[in-house]
Write a protein that binds this DNA or RNA. Structure first.
Length: 474
DNA sequence: ATGTTC
């Protein structure tokens, strides 16, 4: 397959090359700031590759949509590139329901209420899982959850589908874990099972398979009209606690080694420094928190589905996949240290790093849309190796929260959710004002993003998933 | 994204 270069350009910046995977319109819409940020990021020593996906947009010190790669034996880790929401990512469960089963708006409302009862969405919400030991979750991830929260029907331990971190047991420096202040432990503990705000969501969606990859979709257990549960959430306050705790030591190390870039806020340290190693350790704990938390959210949705639609409702795990992290990976047999910030790993069929159930098809790459718009299930293709098998993380913000509040009226927002129509996307918030900064007008068009990803030869669409009901936090 | 908040 020869990728279409309409969707790729190499930008020759003073500090090094930036690879951008985006069509003309999306590239122009990015503006100049992402290039300035890239030029700062490229000043981190030994960086070997840096790219933007078409949904890239400005974040703190780095862009959301960044893939940044080092050789493992001379690697650097940057808490700024990974960002505060360590382990943020997606999870999808497949139900045995059909979209027609949820045709009734009142039933969708009842279901949303049942989910809200189990998943607190308000600010400062406390989760309903106080019988879980936070330390176990941080150290062992899913393996640290009591058995009752890992039901056989979708337990990743035995079942057919896994994430690439669910089974990883990261090595811990438990002393580093214990140096995180106690009040932050308590805060994280009571947040287990909560959703968080911003673009995070729990959504029920209806599947439409893409004809070109129908066979892969069917092997994953998908069918047209099927209802799936999509979850987008991260490590809640724990990720921020890790970044705050590690920040000062990382900066001290930079001073000691005489390192820095044009951006004083851009923090990074050698992987083999004490500050770098401690950060990586605590980042792993945040990845474990995030995966276990998404698992608990899915457990709560399963319970809500059963209460609303009967005990025969199933929710089997399809996959759980992060888009904010840094991990060692092997590419063409070479050990590399890969940062993905708002970038999704997407391995092609036959790639040896696919978990066993997805070895032949490639694993599902889970891509959220903005509110009221479709999400996508994608799969890697061989030519995705040119971007270290990284694709987009979603639609990508195009307008700040404040600018969106100024621009969009509640009526326009309601219209985009088809409020009052038979096919209304039912939202938990009665007052849409509270989440108007999440309206689709705040985001790029996800369909265009997907077109660029596919056009650049990074991945292919397996299914388009239309929203039926959405639960959002504030 | 998050918590905190002059």
């Amino acid at each position: 397959m020869i990728p279409n270069e309409t969707y790729y350009r190499r930008i020759d910046l003073p500090a090094g090359d930036l690879h951008v995977f985006a069509g003309d319109a999306l590239f122009r819409a990015m503006g100049a700031k992402p290039l300035e940020i890239a030029n700062n990021n490229l000043q981190i020593p030994n960086i070997r590759y840096m790219s933007y996906t078409p949904d890239a947009h400005v974040g703190v010190g780095t862009c959301i949509g960044t893939t940044a790669v080092w050789q493992a034996d001379e690697g650097f880790v940057s808490p700024t590139i990974v960002g505060s929401d360590i382990g943020c990512g997606m999870r999808v469960h497949l139900t045995n329901l059909d979209a027609d089963d949820l045709k009734d708006v009142k039933l969708r409302r009842k279901l949303v209420k049942a989910i809200e009862k189990r998943i607190p969405t308000e600010n400062h919400a406390r989760g309903h899982f106080s019988d879980i030991r936070l330390e176990d979750v941080l150290i062992k991830g899913l393996h640290g959850l009591p058995g009752k929260y890992v039901p056989d029907a979708y337990t990743p331990r035995r079942a057919t589908s896994l994430t690439h971190v669910e089974h990883a047991r990261f090595r811990y420096d438990e002393d580093a874990l214990n140096r995180i202040p106690e009040h932050l432990w308590h805060r994280a503990h009571r947040q287990l099972g909560t959703l968080g705000g911003g673009n995070h969501f729990v959504e029920l969606q209806a599947v439409t398979l893409d004809e070109a990859n129908r066979d892969i979709g069917e092997r994953w257990g998908l069918r047209d009209g099927q209802v799936i549960v999509m979850i987008h959430s991260g490590s809640r306050s724990w990720g921020g606690a890790v970044n705050q705790h590690c920040g000062s030591e990382v900066v001290k190390t930079m001073r000691k080694l005489g390192l820095g870039t044009a951006d004083p806020k851009l923090a990074f340290a050698p992987l083999d420094s004490e500050a770098g190693a401690t950060y990586v350790n605590l980042m792993y704990a945040a990845l474990n928190f995030a995966v276990a938390n998404r698992h608990l959210l899915a457990f709560a949705v399963r319970d809500a589905l059963r209460e609303t639609l009967g005990p025969q409702a199933e929710t089997r795990t399809l996959y759980d996949l992060m888009h904010n992290y840094a991990l060692e990976e092997s590419h063409d047999g070479e050990p590399l240290f890969v940062h993905r910030k708002g970038a999704t790993r997407s391995l092609p069929p036959g790639h040896p790093d696919n978990p066993e159930p997805y070895r032949e098809t490639g694993h599902p790459a889970l891509i959220p849309g903005s509110m009221g718009t479709s999400s996508y299930l994608m799969v890697g293709v061989p030519s995705g190796a040119r971007n270290y098998h990284s694709i987009c993380h979603g639609a990508g913000r195009v307008r700040s929260r404040n600018a969106t509040k100024q621009l969009v009226t509640v009526d326009e927002f309601a219209a985009s959710l088809r409020v009052g129509q038979e096919d209304e996307v039912v939202v938990n918030h009665r007052a849409l004002e509270a989440i108007i900064d999440e309206s689709p007008q705040a985001y790029k068009d996800v369909d265009q993003i997907i077109e660029s990803v596919a056009g650049a030869g990074l991945a292919a669409v397996v299914a388009k998933c239309r929203p039926l009901a959405t639960v959002k936090g504030v």
